[in-house]
Amino acid sequence: MKKLILFHARECPHCRKMMPLVDRLEKEEGVVMERLEVWHDEKNADLMRSYKPILAPKCEGQLRTPTFFNTETNDVLCGEVPYETLKDWAKK
């Protein structure tokens, strides 16, 4: 089953900018995004690290925030993106 994950960090300005877009996406498209904070939650950090082979190649070889991850398709978005891009990724 498709699961959409947002790996974010509390003090990451890019993540703060993307949050309203995620709220809008959930409201308008009826999708659910699991939001996992990675700098203050070691369990979430370990989960993100476990996906490194999939995530890092899409993010200049690193684990960066925000990272949007579709666990079914392995589609990854990295950093700030326009709403339409986020929507296209979520609807795949």
């Binding site: 790996f7 960090a9 003090e11 300005p13 703060r16 700098w39 950090a45 684990l63 925030t65």
Partner: peptide, 24 residues
């Protein structure tokens, strides 16, 4: 915001890691 994150990472991990990337 970034200085908050850098300070938190220094306190918790000993170095001022970037708040927008995760250590491996």
């Amino acid at each position: 915001t970034l200085l908050d994150g850098l300070a938190a990472n220094e306190e918790k991990h000993g170095l001022r890691y970037c708040p927008c990337r995760l250590i491996s």
